[in-house]
Amino acid sequence: MQPSKLLKPGLYSEGSSDREGATVRLKGGRCRCGYVFFPMQTYGCERCGSHGDALTSCELPANGTLLAEATVHLHADKNRPAPFTIVKVALDDGPVIRTLLADDSAPVAPGQRVTGRLAAVGQSESGETVLDLRFSIAS
């Protein structure tokens, strides 16, 4: 097995593996007021303004319901060639996130259950496989 590394280790970690591959735990936060957010930050709670010890890290499974999808046909950034598909997902724990659909995913539609997994997106300079979060239809 090739050595690998996460593209954005500050935002997610590798969870347990199933036959579809590695699941993902998102690094979210929870405020004393009950508000759950992503990603974790310590500046202050958007709902109540509490900061410091009021905010604690929590792991959010990358499972949720698709709210919307859009395939981008034109994108100015050459590092991210179009087409690619953006998904808006309501995580089961509350936060709504927007990120990329897996390139090999079947087409998705609002209301479907989706899961985030780690997908190979390139090679690091030292030869490791770089893994990033991608969503696809939940198995």
Partner: peptide, 25 residues
């Protein structure tokens, strides 16, 4: 100072393409 998953890939027209998809459905 707060990271993001893929906001660099979501320019305004994609924000509104997502809303278009939601409204249509």
């Amino acid at each position: 100072g707060i990271g993001h998953l893929a906001e660099d890939a979501i320019v305004p027209f994609t924000h509104f393409a997502l809303l278009t998809n939601e409204y249509s459905v």
